[in-house]
Design a protein around this nucleic acid. Structure first.
Lengths: 194, 194
DNA sequence: CGACTCCTACCAACCAGTCGGTACAATTCA
DNA sequence: TGAATTGTACCGACTGGTTGGTAGGAGTCG
């Protein structure tokens, strides 16, 4: 029984990008070998090099895809919605936990992972990850303006993002989701009574 | 006579460990190739495999060395000293900044780096990194007891460590030390008024 | 001597990337 | 019309270089 046509939902190129996203998210970029990609996406080398010129070319497409997704789901849908600020902050924190709850493993934050793996020896990746962090901090600072005032907003936004990323790091190493939950709860309390 | 032999052997082995520490700190474990180690330490392969049985064997020795150093300089010398708690917290934060200030590059926290690189696909490294984080959080919780009370101490300790690690992550990606400084200042303010 | 220390030459496995070729549909030409 | 040409999608054997690790020899020193 052949199920060839099922894949035509997305294009072949998108299929490769999506499959590789998973691999890079859990194994990192360098540690994801071309052979892993070829096996996971069930394609041959010819097909791969028909759509992408190098492995890095694919890597960049994967990061772009991550940035696009987060831009939609976190920044646009939550932080730039027209709900009250306190609600937006809470929704962001809910989203963070839900993100790591659903993927029964401890792969961590794709941007945090890439930041630590790549930022010191590859400018292309560093810059792309940077754009997302910058957007995140800026739009979060906008939200926090109403809570801590204009002067301190950006500093607090940095601190909150740092706390989340650090929490994810600890969660990953302890292989224990409750650590992240504690830290998120800590953030909630910190900004609830303002 | 025998002492001299032992010392020179230890020195040589330690020299390899120390040199590799630098490499692993800035490039990560997998990305530090054996040839890099051989070049940096200026030794031949025979010498390497005389002292270490595998690359992973060296990697473990390097992590052990990091753990020992931090145990001495951070946990014993600062967090378990007999100074007042507020002072110990401040000294820890000073130490964190000084650590990243002196190494004119942005290599990040060796444990944070290893946690994200290795913890999902190597139990040995994950466990060793875990031990250090556990020690750090426990002895920091002891310090925070006097500031936030026994009940909340551990949760706050986790949050502070997360904030520092996340701050280092952002600092590394933004290649900007002031981000870490802001976050550390934020922590200082948070626990100063208690 | 013989244990210890350290060397170079070498190995199989693996890596990203290349290359000659195939299948087949669309376009051009006679 | 239908034969020749062109373009797109794909294959997998192969390449040059790198990887971690091994074998066997040589210098040193008690």
């Amino acid at each position: 029984m052949k199920t060839e046509q099922v894949i035509s939902m997305t294009t072949k190129k998108e299929h490769i990008i999506l499959t590789t996203s998973e691999l890079i998210h859990s194994k990192g970029y360098e540690n994801t070998k071309l052979s892993d990609i070829l096996n996971a996406a069930d394609i041959g080398k010819g097909q791969f090099y028909h759509y992408f010129s190098t492995k890095k070319d694919l890597g960049i497409a994967v990061v772009d895809q991550f940035v696009r997704t987060w831009d939609q789901n976190l920044i646009e849908a939550i932080l730039k919605s027209d709900k009250p600020s306190g609600e937006k902050l809470n929704e962001m924190l809910d989203w963070a936990i839900a993100y790591h709850e659903k993927s029964a493993s401890f792969r961590g934050c794709p941007f945090g992972n890439l930041a630590l793996e790549m930022s010191e020896h590859d400018e292309t990746f560093r810059t792309k990850v940077n754009v997302l962090f910058e957007k995140w901090i800026n739009s979060l600072a906008d939200v926090l303006k109403d809570i801590v005032g204009e002067d301190m907003a950006r500093q607090h936004a940095q601190a909150v993002v740092a706390q989340i990323e650090g929490g994810i790091l600890l969660m990953k190493n302890f292989q224990d989701l409750t650590i992240l939950k504690n830290i998120v709860e800590n953030i909630r309390v910190q900004y609830a009574k303002h």
